[in-house]
Structures are given as structure tokens and as C-alpha cells.
Simulated assay, not measured.
Amino acid sequence: MQNTLTHEVGILINSRSYTFREPRSPAYRWVDLKRLRLPPEPVGDEDLLAALIGHEQFRDDYAGGGVLPEGIRHGPYWLRAVTPDAYEAVGREESGN
């Protein structure tokens, strides 16, 4: 499947200046939201997950370099080890929601 996900917007929420109750709580926490538009045609879960893993925006090592189009990591994980088979579907009960 050709990667038909389209990156629309990214938002970084940094807790560096937030005052937590516990002084040691921040510990360099952040949330990085990346909004991708799904392809117009229906695709299966595994194909959609493969498209996400293959998307340029997934190639962010979160070590200050940003998204690297030729990157080989997603956070601390080597992309060669991140495959749709590495994920396991869980239901609401298992997810704690």
C-alpha cells in the first residue's frame, strides 16, 4: 500500500514551565501530537499501522533532532524492530478504559 497518510499539523505541549505539586515531577515531560489524515479508501488495521510506521512523521527520535526523513528510530526504538506484527490489538477491558 502506498503511504496515503497526510500530516496536517503537529503540536508540542511542554511541561517545562508548569508548576507541579511535587518539585521533581516535571522530569522533562511533554506530549507531541501529530495529526495525520487517513486515506479516503478503507484500509485494514494492519495496513493502516504499516502506513503510520512508514510515515516520515514517525521518524522522530525525540532527542532534539526532530523528524528525520531518513531516520532509523522512533523515540528509543529502532524502526527495523517496529512492525505491525510487534503490536497487539486490545479491547476496552484490557486497556483499562
Rank of each mutant, 00 (worst) to 15 (best):
Q2I: 09
Q2M: 10
Q2L: 05
N3A: 10
N3E: 07
T4L: 03
T4S: 09
T4G: 04
T4R: 04
H7L: 13
H7K: 05
E8T: 13
V9D: 05
V9R: 03
V9A: 06
I11K: 02
L12R: 15
L12Y: 02
L12P: 07
I13W: 05
S15G: 06
S15I: 00
S15A: 07
S17H: 13
Y18C: 01
Y18W: 15
Y18S: 12
T19M: 03
F20V: 00
F20N: 00
F20S: 15
R21Q: 12
E22A: 12
A27F: 07
A27T: 09
A27L: 04
Y28W: 09
Y28S: 15
Y28T: 07
Y28H: 11
W30R: 03
D32Q: 03
D32I: 06
K34V: 09
L36K: 14
R37V: 12
R37C: 01
R37M: 09
L38G: 12
L38Q: 14
P40N: 07
P40D: 10
E41R: 10
E41G: 11
P42A: 13
P42Q: 09
P42K: 14
V43D: 02
G44D: 15
D45I: 15
D45S: 15
E46R: 15
E46M: 08
D47H: 12
D47T: 10
L48T: 10
L48R: 04
L49D: 15
A51L: 12
G54F: 02
G54Y: 02
G54D: 10
G54E: 08
G54H: 04
H55P: 12
H55Q: 02
E56W: 02
E56I: 01
E56D: 11
E56C: 06
E56R: 06
Q57S: 14
Q57C: 09
F58K: 11
F58G: 02
D61R: 10
D61K: 01
D61L: 02
Y62R: 01
G64F: 03
G65E: 15
G65S: 10
G65P: 13
G66H: 08
V67K: 09
L68K: 11
P69Q: 04
P69A: 02
G71Y: 10
G71D: 07
G71W: 05
I72T: 11
R73N: 05
R73M: 11
R73A: 03
H74L: 01
G75K: 00
G75I: 00
G75D: 00
Y77H: 11
Y77W: 05
Y77I: 00
L79P: 12
L79E: 11
R80E: 07
R80M: 11
A81R: 09
A81W: 04
A81E: 12
V82I: 13
V82N: 04
T83P: 05
T83C: 13
T83D: 13
P84V: 01
D85G: 08
D85F: 00
A86L: 13
A86N: 01
A86Q: 07
A89Y: 12
A89E: 15
G91K: 02
R92M: 08
E93L: 08
E94F: 01
E94H: 08
G96E: 11
N97D: 11
N97I: 15
